[in-house]
Design a binder for these strands. Sequence first.
DNA 1: CCTGGAGTTGTCCTA
DNA 2: TTAGGACAACTCCAG
Length: 478
Amino acid sequence: MSTDRPTIVWLRKDLRLKDNPALRAAAAAGPIVPLYIHEENGPARALGAASRWWLHGSLEALASDLEKSGGRLILRRGAAADVLTNLISETNAKGVYWNRVYDTPSMKRDAAVKSRLRDDGLDCRSFNASLLNEPWTVKTTTGSDFRVFSPYWRTAKSLIATPSRQVESPPSLTFVTPRPLSEHLADWALRPRSPDWSEGFAEWTPGEQGAQTRLKAFLSGPLRGYAVNRNYPGEKGVSKLSPHLHFGEIGPRQVWAALHNVAQSESADSLEIFRNELGWREFNYYLLYNNANMPQENLNRSFPSIRWRHNPTEMRAWRRGRTGYPIVDAGLRQLWSSGWMHNRVRMIVASFLVKHLLVDWRKGEAWFWDTLVDADLASNIGNWQWVAGCGADAAPYFRIFNPILQGQKFDPDGHYVRRWSPELARLPNSLIHSPWKGSPSILADAGVNLGHSYPRPIVDHLQARDRALAAYKGLQHA
DNA sequence: CCTGGAGTTGTCCTA
DNA sequence: TTAGGACAACTCCAG
């Protein structure tokens, strides 16, 4: 009888059935209870609106996948410790397994839960489903922690098994009976109602199937030219795997192993550069793990205390994509509309906010957190700090993206700008990244009424650049 | 302990 | 037209 006692699988950022170590281990031990806990007031930062949208789809997909195996995903709200305690007593569970998350408050809570459950005699185990290398396993030769990407990644890469060790999908799942009660996903109201702003999210397919489809499409297409095309936001040059990876609908080990199996010869550069992107994801997790206050504080302690500006009008213009710089506005509109932004453009809009508008990077980070479907604490914090110059491998202070040049370089035919700012579509390529330079007659022919149909630049590039240089330079000893 | 090359993604001016 | 150097100084990290 006691051999039939189930194991609870507490799912978090690992919403998949394949390559899921906690799920596999639990299934090997007998019947399982797959559980997702929605913690509105948990230790981790509350999900942004776009992430909530994604989570709904991901849970729906996971529930459906589990039903195909004859089981049910149990949905509960509340503090994790309470939910687990209740479910353990309802099901007479003998253990709780989960895959780790890596933000410090959650890790502390998980450690406390684990120790309490073990005190109660439960079999409690945690696994790694999210990272190629867990943060505490990568050290310099002297045993310290890396703070620069390249040496970090050189070492981290050497620790990854090739092809990466993968957990097989569980051979078969058995589920506890009778089924515990589950809440209804719809009651969690994760998706917007009135207004429903998610129309532009239709391109996304949350869930394990969607992740696999996205990976296959990338490997058989854009990967070949990734080294070059990834820089062109108007091309289909990138994988778009980020939200799937964030929610654990696919794991980095699966991606790593899949890369190992593609033909190396023609796309060696591209393979290496794409692997580097996985490396940056790992590095940001590593940094956040080693610097728990990074969400609030500059990683670089000697970073000058810049007097950030507060201009609500400019901030609103930035958020809504009305800065008057087409590549910046296109990016912010893509974000607002689709929940995602091309990485090249993320750098441009972030640099524009922090340098041209001199706005605290935390404000940009907060906006990305709310609007990105792939919003990930480690990546978001690490990359915003990098752009601001206060993070790891900080850009030199004089590296200020020129939004006109960046547009001309990486969207030379204006496809990207025209896609997201149709009011500019009829401008010639020579003006698509600097409409204010057009003569009145050319603008009129293109139907562009500056200051009305499309804004004039809210700051002058050269003036803003000089102001940023002065702010970053003059305060060095502050 | 010391040394020295290196460090994600840029821009602008000059020759 | 294009290529190279300046733009700071500092920390990181391997040898």
